[in-house]
Design a protein around this nucleic acid. Structure first.
Length: 221
DNA sequence: GCGACAG
DNA sequence: ATCTTGTCGC
């Protein structure tokens, strides 16, 4: 698919933070998703092995989770892992995979954060601006903020608050298991993000599209 | 200065 | 993320 915009990835951590401070004002994190209109969902993930990053984007039907398309891309890993700057480490290889995509999914689910970010521009939000398509985030750990422990039953959630603002939620997608930390990316809001994460995680802790993307990106491809 | 810190 | 065996629980 064709991307809405793009930029150089040759940035220093300092320049990356400056760019995030510009982009934060363009992120739309209060627009409800129309779940009934979603027909395809894409899972996004990146694996790193021996200085090489491999991106995987898996498009599947919703509901039903039937595979539709898988796009892969490889690039040397340059940018280091710095908490808060993940999109600058995985962005370039992801863009290459997005451009190979022949189908445009109705929404993308990222393995990482979105609005739940110190500057409100996690990888799901950043890539959302480039894609021009709704994106949501599903992280296995919390990047920032605080939250009370959510109930043990599936579907229970508590807000994650950072600097006095609700930026995401700790959501129990599977009873007894550790919750996932979800947040809107771009062109989505928290309530419908929670609904879609629950709808795409019927059996396991992680959303089906993320599980599929993780496997596709693994040390195989 | 000290602790926190997506993948 | 990645390195790795066994092990506790449903």
């Amino acid at each position: 698919m064709k991307l809405e915009r793009r930029h150089s990835w040759s940035l220093s951590p300092k320049e990356a933070i400056a760019l995030q401070n510009d982009l934060r004002h363009e992120v739309i994190a209060d627009r409800p998703l129309d779940l009934s209109a979603i027909r395809t969902v894409a899972g996004v993930d990146v694996s790193v092995k021996n200085e090489v990053s491999q991106a995987a984007v898996v498009v599947m039907t919703f509901p039903g989770f039937e595979p539709v398309e898988t796009a892969l891309a490889q690039r040397p890993t340059t940018f280091p892992y710095v908490p808060g700057l993940l999109s600058f480490r995985e962005g370039e290889v992801l863009v290459e995979a997005f451009e190979k995509l022949r189908h445009t999914p109705d929404v993308f689910i990222f393995d990482g954060s979105g609005y739940l970010h110190p500057r409100r521009v996690g990888i799901a939000s950043h890539m959302g601006l480039w894609l021009g398509v709704p994106t949501i985030a599903n992280a296995k750990n919390r990047l920032c903020g605080t939250n009370q422990e959510s109930g043990p039953e599936r579907g229970a959630w508590t807000p994650v608050i950072d600097r006095g603002e609700v930026v995401g939620a700790a959501l129990r997608t599977r009873p007894g298991c550790k919750p996932v930390f979800v947040s809107p990316g771009h062109l989505a809001d928290l309530d419908t993000t929670i609904e879609l994460i629950m709808a795409t995680s019927p059996k396991y802790r992680l959303p089906e599209p993320i599980r599929r993307a993780h496997k596709a990106a693994g040390v195989f491809g």
